[in-house]
Design a protein around this nucleic acid. Structure first.
Lengths: 246, 246
DNA sequence: CGGGTGCCTTGACCCAGATCAAGAATTGCG
DNA sequence: CGCAATTCTTGATCTGGGTCAAGGCACCCG
């Protein structure tokens, strides 16, 4: 893997966004992708596709947050993934969307018509490779999430979610500012509950508890300040080495 | 996708085992794969790899059942996947195993040394394509499992697991015998508990309850008879159209 | 045949988190 | 500016599933 300087702004719209591969984007495929690409914006709360819908594009998130979720008939819903800027949405080779996709905040997608994208994938093998890599990452994240859902307490779940968001946030903003960090929560309490398999009341109570215990500080309802990341990490119940996520 | 007659025995050892792709296996790659392939057997209960171990092979399951699981330091464990015959194990491009892999029953793997396999992947694009497809299926399965873990009751969890195993079993044995079906449970109560995020006592109680209510019949402790699959399906809480799985 | 050793079942009790309910804080809009 | 409409917090109570404990059953081995 050759380490190439990586400008996220330029590359954000490229679904094969990755420092080593982006270099190649500068070559042929980028133009090819440009020809089939278009942007779309969504308002917070707006649905993007419903489970089962035909989906004739794939896309990458430019700005904002989207959620993938599955719903049961009686209204119970489980969020199964969270898409942050630079994440990929859609599945080459599949007609129907497998989950509901909703814009959690205001959102911009960079879309590619699916058929031409698939064609390109066949012709340029490294795109399929990259997509495989990304899918394996998503699979790992989904499985780490299974551990959270199946075996962690409410407090550990909240801590895990905060740690994951903090880590993601830190890796995007390149401010590796030691152990203290802060960010804006992109999710409502209800969305957090749907992600964690809890009720919104429990989410609220556990956030209050973490605040009371000095693990986090809140500024308003959404801004979270983490004075000591290691402390938060302990609250997650995980062993104390890194695990990637979301 | 061209529908070719599919002999599972011949193809079981081919990691690109799929009716449409198997046809191509008859050509070049099959020989190439044969050259780097070897078999390994494990006894029930035997570990195959531990999370974090270096893993220098990929494999496909020939016979038996293996489990993927994640453990917390204090002993809580969550099973995150179940590998049945014809499933693929391992990740091209990754050195370390991300989970513990254990043989649930006696198990035979058909292994390929990883490096040569990766080389071949680069040269033959349709293998990468197939692997991407398989990984997407696993991702869907993992996410359906997230719904089960996060939002279903204990009874629904058990019903879901039984329905999933029954469906898998039915698709392997080509006996599409209407609505009645039966199979041998490949998991202990404890393994089921680890899969479902429950305790083994709750698993036992809910199985007893389903038996009492006539949803299933047991023969011994492991053989499950499902007189009416639709009835079981209702107990899962899902909407009543198919959803793939495991 | 008798006593392990796994695996499973069932009962009694308890508690983390759900549910129900009442406000408080924040946001948006006429 | 004032009055909804959201979104969040907190309290009181309830309950599904966890925990602890006591056998039951099948199989193996000496």
């Amino acid at each position: 893997m050759n380490e190439i300087v990586f400008d996220h702004k330029e590359c954000g719209s490229c679904p094969i966004r990755h420092r080593s591969v982006c270099a190649r984007c500068e070559a042929d495929e980028l133009e090819e992708l440009d020809a089939i690409k278009y942007y779309r914006s969504y308002e917070a709360g707006q649905p993007i596709v419903w489970s089962g819908d035909r989906m004739d594009f794939v896309a990458s998130v430019v700005t904002g947050v989207a959620s993938l979720s599955q719903a049961m008939e009686d209204g119970r819903t489980q969020m199964v993934g969270l898409l942050l800027p630079s994440d990929f949405l859609g599945r080459p080779g599949r007609d129907a969307a497998p989950y509901d996709v909703v814009a959690v905040s205001n959102l911009t997608l960079c879309c590619f018509r699916r058929k031409p994208f698939e064609q390109m994938m066949i012709r340029t093998p490294h795109v399929a490779q990259r997509l495989l890599e990304m899918t394996l990452d998503e699979l790992d994240a989904a499985r780490e999430w299974m551990l959270i859902l199946g075996r962690k307490t409410a407090r550990e779940k909240i801590a895990s979610l905060l740690a994951i968001i903090a880590r993601r946030e830190a890796s995007l903003a390149l401010t590796t500012a030691g152990d203290g960090m802060d960010f804006e929560l992109p999710l409502t309490r209800e969305a957090m509950a749907d992600y964690l398999g809890l009720t919104l009341e429990t989410v609220s109570r556990q956030i209050s508890a973490l605040k009371r215990d000095g693990v986090i500080t809140l500024e308003g309802k959404r801004k979270v300040i983490i004075p000591d990341f290691d402390r938060l990490q302990i609250e997650t119940g995980d062993d104390n080495d890194g695990g990637l996520m979301v």
